[in-house]
Design a protein around this nucleic acid. Structure first.
Lengths: 230, 230
DNA sequence: ATCATATTTTAGGCTATTCTAATTTTTTGT
DNA sequence: ACAAAAAATTAGAATAGCCTAAAATATGAT
């Protein structure tokens, strides 16, 4: 078992994990932008982490970075803590949907195994986080996902909101006000390739909602059977 | 308002606060020993902290250190968080008496104002911590105390356990097993100046307990009216 | 008052993390 | 294929903490 990882290292691993879920290997530039540091800092850190005894990163100059198995486990550990903490902050301390992220981002580096276990127990060992994200199991298995971005859906498809990006409080508040929360079912009414707008209606709602690409790219959905009739 | 204080700075201030409660000004050696760093490191840090814009410490070479008003407030803020967290860990997450200290020591540097407030509310704005310590008010007022060390008590005095030093898990487990917890009433039966042993009996208990100086110096008590007779 | 012992401070270094500026490598458009 | 643009890397430096070893200062015992 690797000794203690610093906050910075955990942040790098978590970020690289998330980025490499969509794109495979990731460049230092993207990591830098996501983390809010310069590319030079990333190169530096990445070199250190790929030169450890059991390396956490797989890296060779100019070729983009990927996590090793050890790095992936460490990233999932941090992600598990983050998502448990978000749920905990909401359910036990009454934080709102959009407030939890920032606090969890600091606490995730500091809580003990013990704390994590107790929180999980108090919450009933949840599988999904506050924003619908899957929570890695205690053994750090991450469920395979079939989810797609809402952006990819086409007219007449039915779907269920699975997950909403947790790190933009303003967006979260807006989505909540529109009823777009994990579990919500909906039908896509229309899609405009011209401006990347998606018009949809939530189950049991009269109102239609129009969402642009910048929003629909942040929402993961499970696609249900296609709507009967055209 | 001072910007953000690092974990290390908060630890220094907290330690200096506690040490200067008993002794007035404290030397670098004592601080170093308490904090587990070298005296040289303390000198270094102390010089930085006393040279800030609003200084947190009052210091001049070879003369011992004291907190300024700003330093005192910062220390009390950390102490408030620590004590609220200990209570929270116990009452909400089921930590035991002797487990809370270490976890609180890490969390205290990381939680937000918001977190502190919500925890205080969930706990009902408590005035005393898990081990009986007074909790600074939200406005950082610290109640004046009349408490004495158990060590100072003499035969036939009655007392009530007020506070037990929180940072030694083994000692805490022992004291709990003996019924010596905040709120417990007792009578001092005997005191031996020779070996600094104190024999006492808890209210409603048949058994007598003998405690040595190293223990009785860690327990604060409120002295009640003297025992009738004898 | 003086010398031995204690404590405290200085000096010089190390690590982790970040930065800026300069350089190198890769990609891309033609 | 090759120049221009984009991306990544190196080099050099800063900061916060910490350390060890050496020097300075206090204390206190006779």
């Amino acid at each position: 078992m690797t000794g203690h990882l610093t906050d910075a290292v955990e942040d790098y691993l978590k970020t690289i994990y998330k980025l490499s879920c969509s794109r495979g290997r990731v460049g230092t530039g993207l990591i830098a932008e996501t983390l809010g540091v310069t590319p030079a800092s990333v190169t530096d850190m990445v070199q250190r982490l790929s030169g450890e005894d059991p390396p956490l990163l797989d890296y060779a100059k100019h070729q983009g970075v990927a996590l090793t198995e050890g790095g992936r486990k460490a990233a999932l550990e941090t992600i598990r803590r983050h998502r448990l903490l978000e749920l905990f902050l909401h359910q036990v301390l009454g934080y709102s949907w959009d407030q939890v992220h920032v606090e969890a981002d600091r606490l995730e580096h500091v809580i003990s195994e013990e704390f994590e276990e107790r929180v999980a127990e108090v919450l009933g060992n949840p599988r999904r986080g506050l924003h619908g994200e899957p929570i890695p199991s205690p053994g750090l298995e991450m469920p395979d996902r079939e989810d797609r971005y809402l952006l990819e859906m086409r007219p007449n498809q039915r779907g269920i909101v699975q997950e909403v990006n947790d790190d933009d409080p303003g967006l979260l508040r807006f989505l909540e006000s529109q009823g777009i929360v994990p579990g919500a079912g909906f039908v896509v009414l229309d899609y405009s390739a011209y401006d990347d707008n998606l018009r949809l209606r939530l189950d049991g709602s009269e109102a239609e909602i129009v969402l642009g690409a910048s929003i629909t790219g942040q929402i993961l959905v499970e696609i249900a059977e296609p709507q009967a009739g055209a």
